[in-house]
Design a protein around this nucleic acid. Structure first.
Lengths: 348, 348
DNA sequence: CGGGATCATGTTATCGATAACATTGATGAG
DNA sequence: CTCATCAATGTTATCGATAACATGATCCCG
């Protein structure tokens, strides 16, 4: 085995297969991509040669020639924190079903970094592109528009989408969960966990968190619940830690708070722990709501009241949309609102 | 914009740039990949043309010609459940730093599916490959060996690695955490959550869970703690749900159990919730230990005693190893043990 | 039985870059 | 002054497939 590693074997080419099967390369190509065009006997001969030689087609050459890469690039803010993982999973799945592959890049919530990644992604001539960020530099938008590559923005519904979008309204979701808290009789509702951990650094950040907060503020205003109860967010630490710290800060400033909406379930876990530490009765004294419906939030886990986002479906639909676009110009809806769902459990 | 989508713009080629700059294509190529070989004046002219035309190099053509793809394929069992997400993150990061890109596939714990994905991955002629599964079909091993592509297996230390490996000993980790429970005076220790949810279906499954369990059993044997307390695992549900159900089943069968080692932190969360539901004092009556040190396990969250795995580092090292191999044949260690760490918190 | 349609397969050009070798002009040592 | 050397750039072949067109065999029906 060692030798094969030191002196990489020369790959078997289509030519080798053709020779072995006594046909021309184009026939081999046909057997692989449109078998029905080849007589059964010939096809079998070629297939045997493919097996015997262990031929693995070279998609690089194939892509260059056919000008389709069967590759979709996804640029996500981060994989940590289980937010986008299911979306990527769904995307990978729907692509695989159609013989496409996934290229992945992480932007770490920086749109400068996103721009660089878009460039390298485009250099692979992908058949489509999925972006989890709703904010892009002008240069990035220009590159994408100029490239003609189909683009799906996911996890929000941009007002001015680059091309297509699959997601839900973060603002509406923030409003809805706040409203739900209001309906259970809460009147002094706070918000914690907004803004990304790198926001200070990069000058931007978790846009979606801000949108949810706007929804929260809108709901407060609607019901005349006074000024928003939001603490400035520290720049570091995990989401869980921030949940704990932010709740402490919130209660310090507004001790009579009777409910908190947390910008994610991770934040909510931190808040729940902090509440327990302080001997605060949840939901008696303090209602806690999260966002995302992560695995841990369920009945068997935290029993957290939260907002369920169809993360997997978002990814799967994004893939489907891209491939549909590839097949025909029949666009269908450019913006797909998959909605969200308030899940009432034990904490509110 | 619409028009650009319906009739994809023709890409600007290197030829166009060359023409605009009044040089030959090879000079453009040199400006892009080895600028020091080109006179400053010429270089600037070319760079200007690149900017003006918005040239994005075609890596597909480049790869075909240079026979290096600057692409690394990673095949993970799943992205859900935050187990591998950080590893993929770490890998993506270390690759990006060296101008390489990441292709991702999810095997869903099936090595048949892994085999298929390996074939499609190889068809892109990747410069390296990362596998999270330690089990491969003979055909898969053969393809990999025959391809000469450097391979890193991660998250375990296979006895017979295909090529390189970065991880830790799951068996040792299982033994160590069991030992730690023993040291705190526990004598009736159970194990829950082993085996993947699809194990029944696919005829194989979460090998690593089994290895941890072996470690657990070894520790029991060492100390003469009697027969292992393990319940058969049901085939479905999330890890958290399984934690709750398995703990219930465990206590039903062995009511005097005084500690459980859970095969992951998610399982531990389920177990903790179930314990709380039953009014069991943790850690007083029942100690609970997890595995993985997920974000939720920390002090601000569950305060879970667990085993910390350097997931991000595993990914980053895997990337580094692959790229080092690419640069020179100087192999360095073929197997890198990054170890693990017992983190004692409130639950045990 | 002839000729257009259809099927099965082959030939040639091409995709967009890079490798390897070739060329040109300038520089400098003897 | 001359030839070796080197720096800067160009020319040509090539990577491994597929598209587009070409060819030959077979078939069907009037």
């Amino acid at each position: 085995m060692t030798e094969s590693l030191l002196a990489p074997r020369k790959w078997v080419t289509m030519q080798d297969v053709a020779l072995a099967a006594g046909v021309s390369t184009i026939t081999v190509s046909r057997v692989l991509r449109s078998p029905e065009k080849v007589k059964a006997a010939t096809r079998e001969r070629v297939e045997a040669a493919v097996r015997d030689l262990g031929y693995v087609p070279d998609q690089v050459a194939g892509s260059l020639s056919s000008r389709e890469s069967r590759l979709v690039a996804a640029l996500v803010s981060t994989l940590a924190g289980s937010v986008f993982a299911s979306t990527v999973d769904g995307l990978a799945q729907s692509l695989r079903d159609e013989g496409h592959q996934l290229m992945l890049g992480t932007t770490e919530y920086s749109s400068a970094s996103e721009q660089a990644l878009i460039a390298t992604a485009l250099s692979r001539r992908p058949d489509g592109m999925v972006l989890t960020s709703g904010e892009h530099t002008p240069a990035a938008r220009a590159m994408l528009a100029g490239s003609g590559v189909p683009v799906v923005e996911v996890w929000e519904l941009p007002e001015d989408p680059i091309d297509m979008a699959v997601g839900f309204s973060n603002t509406e979701a923030g409003r809805a969960i706040t409203e739900a808290l209001y309906q259970t009789g809460r009147r002094r509702i706070g918000f914690i966990g907004g803004g990304s951990r790198r926001s200070a650094e990069v000058g931007e950040g978790d846009r979606r968190g801000r949108l949810r907060r706007q929804g929260y503020e809108a709901a407060l205003a609607e019901h005349g619940l006074g000024e928003p109860r939001v603490v400035p967010n520290p720049a570091d630490g995990s989401m869980v830690e921030r949940g704990a710290r932010d709740l402490a800060a919130l209660l310090e400033r507004w001790p009579d708070t009777d409910a908190v909406f947390c910008s994610s379930d991770s934040v909510a876990l931190g808040a729940l722990s902090e509440a327990r530490r302080r001997g605060i009765d949840v939901p008696g004294t303090l209602a806690v709501a999260g966002f995302g419906d992560f695995e841990m939030a369920g009945e068997s886990g935290l029993g957290l009241t939260t907002v369920r986002i169809p993360g997997y479906a978002i990814g799967a639909e994004a893939g489907r949309l891209l491939l549909a676009r590839k097949r025909s110009e029949a666009t269908g809806p450019r913006i797909l609102d998959l909605g969200f769902e308030i899940v009432r459990r034990a904490t509110a």
